[in-house]
Design a protein around this nucleic acid. Structure first.
Lengths: 223, 223
DNA sequence: TTATGTGAACTAATTCACAGCG
DNA sequence: CGCTGTGAATTAGTTCACATAA
């Protein structure tokens, strides 16, 4: 079965891969060439069996007593993620968050190369932010087609999100990484990944509240 | 059992709460006062039973044929998240991402009020970014204690993350929302929530690759 | 009939336990 | 032994199916 790859890798696993790559990168600069699943697990606070299972979705095999070859493993994970060669992307919405993302070099490592920014606000047009030029929104279709760009990072206010998305879709964009806290309607052949910054904050809030509550109740309560 | 609240709400549920609040806020401005689970579910692309189960962790009860009272539900969710009154927080690392977060008003809604920024770079000291003053890192302990700040948003480079975290812990910070892609060691009484921007991108990459692959294979492959 | 609420069934993910290899 | 790899057991989360209330 050649196409066992139809979403055979579970999403929780995929979400952990970037962290694995991060660890591999760190180890590599120290000159180490192999790593054990346990080592990765400890550095990330995960279960070692989980790491082995996750790595098992790649073609590479680890050697007992030695571990995994860092070089091989890195490229295997890059391949599973489709990060072999960076994909060009547009950034839509050069506000505070958008500007920050334009200045973030790390995306290169994540297979993403933001090549241009777009904004509705004319005062931003033809300026450059972190070395990336800002174009008027209307030019998305033309430039997307010319450059063959398929991915957009959407950092516009909620109120503009759907309108911008519609324009992106018309321009042939197939993947939208959205930082706007709202649902975006797209046809079946377009993928939207919604980044929920607030989810992480919600978890932090709850964990912190619980910890503080226990400190107050703990001493009094039995056991 | 009064303390059934010891992490009785599953994390996946907690992560969805901010999205629910977002929907409730949108509905509220239109003047509507009640909402059904199905309506929420549709707006977010979720299953309606899941929404009901999630809301079931709160004390409020919905009325058949009517739904949930938006006002009540909002405050119940705020309470479950510990977002009743905004918590003051420090931002550590006034680089590109840090500056963006300083400019993001939305955190107020998420129970977070960033009151000051800190940076190692002296050239940034005593400047203001989006109206928030930037202090030298050394002043964290003094100001945290004076203001009773317990939460920090960490947006420093990987290389500085642990060092900054150590200083924060010494200053009495109990919750760290970290955007640095690395593990941070903290004592048991401190909570670290790691925000993995790359996870979302990983999922987008894979979903997009699969979609494009199917388009190429699809027409040829059987069924 | 249109909604909530919930036990039961199912599906997914994690962890355990152990076999196998160098 | 120290490590990988994996079937089996467990736990967690989601969805189904249905009872109930206005």
């Amino acid at each position: 079965m050649e196409d066992a790859s139809i979403q055979s890798v579970p999403y929780p696993t995929i979400k952990r891969y970037p962290a694995y790559l991060q660890v591999l990168k760190e180890l590599k600069v120290t000159g180490i060439t192999t790593v054990s699943a346990r080592d990765i697990a400890e550095r990330l606070g995960l279960n070692q069996v989980q790491v082995r299972k996750d790595l098992g979705y790649s073609a590479i095999i680890g050697r007992p007593k030695v571990g995994y070859d860092i070089e091989q493993l890195t490229s295997a994970l890059h391949q599973l993620l489709g990060w072999q060669d960076p994909k060009e992307a547009f950034l839509i919405g050069a506000g505070a968050l958008g500007s920050a993302l334009l200045g973030y070099r790390g995306f290169q490592e994540y297979g993403l190369d933001i090549v241009a920014a777009f904004d509705l606000d004319p005062s931003k047009h033809n300026t450059a932010i972190h070395g990336k030029r800002v174009f008027p929104m209307e030019r998305v279709p033309e430039l997307a087609k010319r450059m063959g760009v398929l991915i957009a990072v959407l950092t516009v206010p909620e109120s503009a999100a759907q309108k911008c998305a519609d324009l992106l879709i018309e321009a042939g964009i197939r993947g939208i990484w959205s930082f706007s806290p709202c649902k975006i309607e797209v046809p079946d052949n377009v993928v939207v990944q919604r980044e929920e910054l607030s989810s992480g904050l919600a978890v932090l809030s709850v964990r912190l509240s619980e910890m503080l509550k226990h400190e107050n109740n703990g001493p009094k309560a039995p056991a």
